[in-house]
Design a protein around this nucleic acid. Structure first.
Lengths: 328, 328
DNA sequence: CTCCGTTGTTGAAGCGCTCCAATCATTGTG
DNA sequence: CACAATGATTGGAGCGCTTCAACAACGGAG
């Protein structure tokens, strides 16, 4: 930086101002500085800048599992909103390891990011609230009743309701739900399912599961061997729906001819033409954008109370749902 | 840090040493420092540390497109190797935008990361080589004949050869290849296909395409309407294979009964039981691990010449390949 | 009892930037 | 023509850490 200043014939302070586009720099010196900088191949040192200015203009984004096709769209939304607000992003993934998650959050704190977005974090609430004392934190896709961190979630209860309404309107009465016990939103989806079924005077039929393809396979086999009639399956997420689909195929049951199938999340797999799964879209881009908005409110707006946002999801009807055979 | 020093009754310098686990600190003062630090909730400032020590112990990882299911496994391998070597990771994604890619690389340089790993980067070679003057760079999944950056790739030529050998050994003579023109590795796969076909005295049949599902659909339709017989399709990657699969399904052609199908990459989609696509595994974890290794050789080993690694892929036979109907 | 090698500890000098108060140059006003 | 107001520029302090030469304390060898 000294070199740049000397070469441009100005002081270091002016170089700093010019390079950051301050408006109190004469066009002449700005040009001189820019020429000198590019001739010297000068790159400002972010560490020094962050240290001196006591802010990083950076948000940390922690993704619980990079492998999960659910996340990219959320990060997409975050990225777009952050770009617009002039913030940089630092992404990290914990690959499902809780300790790694906490370590990653700590790293964000040590780096002094201006805010942290946790997407689908699995780690304990205590660790999160502790970190929240040092930096604003917003949780996406993980409900948490806290008054120190913000949360942004889709309305899982409503999403499940949409699914059941759709199936019922097609004429289904025997809708089985493959729940996602541990996963985020699982309990809410289940509750929405049960409530809506009962409102229509139908008997809930729940098979335990997780948010994986394998659990979908198990649940489907149990459901079909159970004895109770099943004309439609509402899987807890797209991945488990694929497991169900496999079993249906394997048993020669046509979809949606014999059994209708619905997933949740609208991941790109559901959109593959060869699968064309009816599912629920959470509007993940919006989820990400709202997370950034919440952070900005705290960082630049000075908000200190927690904000808990719940946005409505949308049913995406594709080719795995239709009227039950008896009506067909 | 001053507070910690005072509370522990030692100097700031000693706090620094103790917190980084130096071995020339007495157990007594180490304990005192650690207690003081945790009581005060002290978090070292990474920016200050990086500035003072002139190294960050961090590698920057740039993923060309977060949405592509190809990448997570590579990052997984990188993460594991970096952890082991005591390096932190900073991940970023450009979402297919070349300018964003260059900007992200610049950001890595400004942050003074110790090394950069570009996974599937699309941006111009010039930009990469320029950045390479400031920081060691290794390219994964993007061949580039350069003597300033390292590259780590799978042997696409060999992979294609494995595919053709597999199909030929099943009895296929009419193997169509849906190429991936622009994508990384596309040309090499094509060349491997052509060469192996010709070695077996078979006539190559190539349909242009890209590495997307939609292009697979188009290519498959063209191939089937073309007039030439087709008993097997070798798609450039898994995604385009899914497009092909959809067309085959739509036309009532059984897979592999009427037509065999092979992809490339072994993404998790290929492994879905409902799809069970025969494909080629690049050993992406290894790719990532080798990238870290290459970086370490430069950073800690002082290597300055370029290293170009090509690792052999493996055929993964699932359920979309079988003997052609005429032999069945 | 002195001298020296260890081991543990410290003060101070940076690292490369930002930011503030102070300075200088210029223009407009009565 | 002096004086204030405005705009452009600068020197220097300071951000929170690491590093290194220098120093204190201490036991063992001569």
């Amino acid at each position: 930086m000294d070199d740049v200043a000397r070469r441009a014939g100005v002081s270091r302070a002016l170089v700093s101002l010019a390079l950051r586009g301050s408006d109190k720099v004469s066009p002449a010196s700005r040009a001189a500085v820019e020429r000198a900088a590019s001739e010297l191949g000068y790159r400002p040192n972010l560490n020094a800048r962050n240290l001196a200015s006591k802010r990083t203009s950076t948000f940390g984004v922690l993704i619980n599992d990079l492998h999960n096709p659910y996340f990219p769209a959320v990060v997409d939304g975050i990225k777009r909103a952050a770009d617009e607000a002039g913030y940089r992003l630092v992404i990290n993934s914990a690959f499902l390891d809780e300790d790694a998650e906490v370590a990653a959050i700590d790293a964000f704190v040590e780096f002094r990011v201006d805010g942290v977005i946790l997407v689908g974090a699995r780690c304990g609430a205590a660790a999160i609230e502790r970190a929240a004392q040092a930096v604003p934190i917003v949780l996406v896709s993980r409900p948490l009743a806290s008054d120190v961190v913000d949360t942004i979630n889709n309305d899982d209860h409503l999403g499940a309701q949409l699914v059941v309404e759709h199936l019922v309107s097609l004429g289904h009465e025997h809708v089985c739900h493959v729940e996602g016990v541990t996963g985020a939103g699982g309990p809410e989806r289940r509750a929405g399912y049960v409530e809506t079924m009962e409102r229509h005077g139908l008997e809930p039929h729940i098979q335990p599961g997780a948010f994986t393809e394998a659990s979908g396979v198990d649940a489907a086999e149990r459901a079909l061997d159970d004895g109770r009639p099943v004309t439609a399956v509402f899987a807890g997420n797209d991945l488990s729906a694929l497991g169900v689909l496999d079993v249906l195929d394997g048993r020669g049951l046509a979809v949606p001819g014999d059994v209708s199938l619905v997933g949740y999340d609208n991941t790109f797999v559901a959109a593959l033409r060869h699968i064309a799964l009816t599912t629920v879209d959470q509007n993940r881009q919006r989820l990400g954008a709202l997370a950034v908005e919440a952070l900005l409110e705290r960082v630049e707006g000075g908000r200190t109370t927690a904000r808990h946002e719940v946005i409505p999801p949308e049913l995406v009807v594709r080719e795995t749902t239709g009227p039950p055979r008896s009506l067909g």
